[in-house]
Structures are given as structure tokens and as C-alpha cells.
């Protein structure tokens, strides 16, 4: 009786339209021949052609991929260590502070993270001469600090829901703690680790604020390029890029969902 109540379903439909309409419009206009995106000038793949000529954009994309890969891996490593410390260790000095520190970047405005890191790098440069040049590594540090909090949020929940008797069983069968971690705990929580890594990767690949603060000359990331272009208005080339981007992400997500659904015994 309650399940058949139509009102929430109608709102759900409207909400989904709200979420997808702009994306569909982008895809539609990316095939527009006209210079002005809002006027339909016939079907064309012109903007895709121009997009592929745009070496500056692809170079930035390559930089972003490298940064995203590095920072996601670092964030997953650090976030997993922090989650282990919070869920598997007996209470230690400063645990409460540690616990709130690990999630604090989640509620910290990106603009403050970016500004504070830049000020830190500048001061460090004055004091110890490092980093003399901002670029790849300073951006990586910024992204890692932010996305590590997201990794902790995912991995910590998984670890605290983890059936501890499984680890005890391994200890009981003669495995030392480090072996239990590598052969039992990490393999079982690997989906959560992967989800955390993927989220960290996307956060880094998508970030414009922290990157803008922590980057230096010659280390422009993809979102920085896109940001500077769309700030001045609509750019048909970005439509084409967005379409490719959305298509890639959709494919990856669908693939992951398919693998997950197939694995589940129905």
C-alpha cells in the first residue's frame, strides 16, 4: 500500500531528469557544427577533430593522469594504515586527535586546503630550500591529503564491519600478525581498497582548486585547462571532451557494476 504511493516515485523521476538533462544536452551539442553552441547548425564531428589536435589539452590530461595515479596510490596506502591503526590497534596516545584528524579534510573547504598548503610550501622553501619549484609533487601532496580522508572513510567502515574471528582464526592457525594482514585481511577488504583508490583517483583527476594553488609553471592539470576555458564562456570543444569523458566513465562504471552483479549469487 505504502510502496505503491506515487509521489516519491514522481519526484524520483523528476530528480533523475534534473541530473541527466544537462549531460544529455552536452552530448547533443558536441555534435553541433555551429560555432555558437546554443544554435543547432547541423550534425558534425568537427569539434572532435579539433579536440584531437589540441595537444595542450592532452598534455594537461596526461599530467593529470600521472598525478591522479600517484596521489590515489599514496592516499590508499596512508588511508589504509590510518584505518588499521584506528580499528585494529589497542588505544594509543592521541588516538582521538588522530581519529578526527583523518576525517577533518572532508569538511575543510578545498580553498583553505589549497591556500594553506601553498603558504606552507612557500615558507618551507624559505626555511629549508624545499620545494624550490612547485609542480607535480606539490600537487600530489595536496591531493593525497584530501583524498586520504575519503579512503579512511571507506576502508575504516569496512574494517570495523569485518568479522574479527576470521583474523583470530588465522592467528590461531599459526599465522603471525603481518601474515594475517597480507593473506587474510587485505585480500578480503580489497574491494573497499579498490573503491577508495578509485574515489581518490577521481577526486584528484577532477580537482581544480587545490591544483591551482599548489601548481607551478609548466604543471597545468586538465581541470585547470578546462576551468580557464569555460570561465570565459561556452566552448564547443569542451562539449566534445565532456562527451568522451562521460562515455569513458560510464563504460568503466558499467563494467565494474556488471562484474559485481555477476559475482553476487542471486
Amino acid at each position: 500500500m505504502l510502496k505503491s504511493n506515487l509521489f516519491p516515485k514522481i519526484i524520483l523521476g523528476i530528480g533523475l531528469c534534473f541530473l541527466y538533462l544537462p549531460i544529455l544536452i552536452i552530448i547533443f551539442y558536441s555534435f553541433n557544427a555551429a560555432n555558437f553552441t546554443s544554435i543547432w547548425g547541423g550534425f558534425s564531428t568537427r569539434w572532435y577533430y579539433e579536440l584531437f589536435q589540441d595537444t595542450y589539452l592532452w598534455q594537461a590530461a596526461w599530467t593529470s593522469l600521472k598525478i591522479a595515479f600517484t596521489s590515489a596510490t599514496l592516499a590508499t596506502f596512508l588511508g589504509t594504515l590510518a584505518s588499521l591503526a584506528l580499528t585494529r590497534f589497542s588505544p594509543f596516545k592521541g588516538q582521538r586527535l588522530f581519529s578526527s584528524l583523518t576525517i577533518a579534510p572532508l569538511v575543510m573547504p578545498e580553498i583553505i586546503i589549497g591556500l594553506s598548503l601553498l603558504l606552507l610550501f612557500v615558507s618551507l622553501n624559505i626555511c629549508i630550500g624545499w620545494p624550490s619549484k612547485r609542480g607535480f609533487w606539490t600537487i600530489c601532496i595536496g591531493h593525497t591529503t584530501l583524498s586520504m580522508a575519503y579512503v579512511v572513510a571507506i576502508v575504516r567502515v569496512r574494517l570495523s564491519h569485518f568479522d574479527k574471528t576470521i583474523e583470530e582464526a588465522a592467528l590461531d592457525l599459526g599465522a603471525k600478525p603481518l601474515r594475517v594482514l597480507t593473506f587474510i585481511t587485505l585480500p578480503i577488504i580489497s574491494p573497499a581498497l579498490f573503491a577508495g583508490w578509485l574515489l581518490a583517483f577521481m577526486l584528484s583527476f577532477d580537482d581544480v582548486v587545490i591544483s591551482s594553488f599548489t601548481s607551478g609553471a609548466g604543471s597545468t592539470t586538465l581541470p585547470m585547462v578546462i576551468f580557464s576555458r569555460i570561465r570565459t564562456g561556452i566552448s564547443p570543444e569542451i562539449n566534445a571532451f565532456a562527451t568522451l569523458f562521460i562515455a569513458t566513465i560510464t563504460l568503466i562504471i558499467l563494467l565494474l557494476a556488471w562484474v559485481k552483479l555477476r559475482k553476487q549469487p542471486v
Binding site: 538533462l21 544536452i25 552536452i26 577532477d206 569555460i230 561556452i234 569542451i238 565532456a242
Partner: peptide, 14 residues
């Protein structure tokens, strides 16, 4: 999961 920037940009079009 798609880019934050792109999603905002989409509204420019609309």
C-alpha cells in the same frame, strides 16, 4: 563520478 567541472559546465549550455 563524471567531472565536477563538466557538470557545472553543462548548465552553461542549458
Amino acid at each position: 563520478w563524471t567531472s565536477f567541472l563538466i557538470r557545472i559546465y553543462a548548465w552553461l549550455n542549458l
